[in-house]
């Protein structure tokens, strides 16, 4: 199986998971690489992107799996060939063969930068730190299955907090990636629910790294 490691940053954060699949399907064609197509009534080029990102979230460590129709490719040259025609903000870092299945992707590290237009309110660092240090952080999640109460705490492996400017407070967290995973957006939602006075004017989120069960970097 072939794998790409790529970034999704800048305005590319607004691309949906489906958009991104289409973008890569086209990029492979432009690079004159015929990837394996699903069989059936309406054949589609098969690409699989692990852990779909929410729209608006940037990432330094996205994984895309694909197969090539005739089974071979110049992996060394592939990132440069794809990057020539990818939209702004999508950049392939590495192309390689991998035998590690995506099911072993266990943890991810993300940053959540809270923006306070009027400056970081005093007491925010302490309050937010103690919120996530508690025994449980229960919030109501609005998902496809309707409303559901989840406890974020067991899904957080590590969490640190530090101001990065007068107005920006950055949470860096290592959280469970899947089954069940924690969408870092929920950390923002928890602050809004439990600490409304420390609600940020805006929060930007970035996925920084992915790990396997043993906390080794996943590739």
């Amino acid at each position: 199986m072939f794998r790409l490691l790529f970034e999704k940053t800048d305005d590319a954060v607004y691309l949906s998971h489906l958009d991104l699949m289409r973008i890569f399907q086209r990029a492979f064609r432009r690079a004159d690489i015929l990837i394996w197509h699903s069989q059936g009534f309406s054949p589609r080029a098969y690409v699989s992107i692990a852990l779909p990102l929410s729209v608006g979230v940037s990432s330094r460590c996205e994984i895309l799996d694909f197969e090539i129709e005739d089974g071979s490719a110049d992996l060394q040259a592939l990132p440069e060939r794809l990057n020539r025609t990818l939209p702004k903000g999508v950049r392939v870092l590495h192309a390689y063969e991998s035998a590690v299945k995506v099911k072993h992707l266990a943890y991810l590290k993300a940053s959540v930068t809270l923006e306070y237009d009027a400056g970081i309110p005093s007491g925010a660092v302490a309050a937010i730190t103690s919120l996530f240090a508690g025994e449980s952080v229960r919030i109501v999640k609005h998902g496809k299955k309707g409303e559901q109460e989840v406890d974020l705490r067991p899904l957080i492996r590590e969490l640190t907090l530090c101001p990065v400017s007068e107005q920006e407070l950055c949470i860096t967290a290592i959280v469970s990636a899947q089954n069940p995973g924690l969408n870092p957006q929920l950390l923002v939602q928890a602050i809004e629910a439990y600490l409304p006075s420390f609600r940020a004017d805006f929060a930007r989120i970035e996925r920084l790294e992915i790990f396997d069960e043993a906390m080794e970097v996943f590739r």
């Binding site: 305005d11 607004y14 729209v55 608006g56 025609t85 990818l86 939209p87 702004k88």
Partner: peptide, 11 residues
């Protein structure tokens, strides 16, 4: 909805 349509940046 669909913010990608407001930012340009396409190939």
């Amino acid at each position: 909805q669909k913010p990608a349509r407001y930012v340009g940046g396409e190939y």
